[in-house]
């Protein structure tokens, strides 16, 4: 454990909780892509199946359980409890265009050709692109609530901090996982445009709105 990994995990946790609280307090999931949230629930489920097979630490297990629990709670709030507020018309990204290629890639490029390992790889690849329906929705409506941008910032920072963690681990532990690193780079790059808007607009007190 190093500072980048810990702050990355906490940033990820903050993102998940910000989103849950936003929906819960406003009693609305307007502006939130249910599809991205389903993808994240799939990501956590596929990756954390190792909860059943290996124990790493109390921290590791607790965080996994919290992430999975929050992911399903978010999906429940969007598709059941506050379904009436879900903006399905604007959430029109075709997720099969992500899931199918990513599934194929996980079968082709993995560390070990075994079911659990392929699911882990699938989750790493899928996570890197799972935010696309959300970013697509914002580009379609041309705006995002400020709280939604805080959510996206924390979520983007999480993988960015992990990149520093991987540099750290390579130098100090000689550890690197090429699959995670390449996917993490892709994931971070996808947020760059958003990071720019967040810094130039939201942090200056303006609402995130895109030119028509």
């Amino acid at each position: 454990m190093n500072i980048f990994r810990l702050t990355g995990d906490l940033s990820h946790l903050a993102a998940i909780i910000i989103l849950l609280l936003k929906i819960w307090k406003s009693r609305s999931c307007a502006g939130i892509s249910g599809k991205s949230q389903i993808l994240f629930a799939i990501v956590f489920t596929a990756r954390y199946l190792d909860l059943l097979t290996s124990f790493i630490s109390v921290y590791n297990t607790s965080m996994k359980v919290i992430y999975i629990g929050c992911a399903y709670a978010t999906v429940y709030l969007i598709y059941a409890k506050f379904r009436a507020t879900y903006d399905g018309n604007h959430d029109s990204f075709r997720v099969e265009f992500l899931v199918v290629p990513v599934g194929g890639l996980a079968v082709l490029i993995n560390h070990t050709f075994s079911p659990l390992e392929i699911l882990w790889t699938f989750s790493i690849y899928l996570e890197s692109v799972a935010i696309l329906p959300q970013l697509f929705m914002i580009s379609k409506t041309g705006e995002a609530e400020t709280i939604t941008t805080h959510y996206l910032f924390c979520l983007g920072m999480y993988r960015t901090l992990y990149l520093f963690n991987w540099v750290w681990r390579f130098y100090f532990e000689g550890f690197f996982d090429m699959i995670a690193i390449v996917a993490g780079l892709v994931q971070t790059v996808l947020y760059c445009d958003f990071f720019y808007l967040y810094v130039t607009k939201v942090l200056k007190g303006k609402k995130l709105s895109l030119p028509a």
Partner: peptide, 10 residues
Amino acid sequence: AARTQQHDEL
């Protein structure tokens, strides 16, 4: 590539 037997990251 050096990697641990189990995935220890989240």
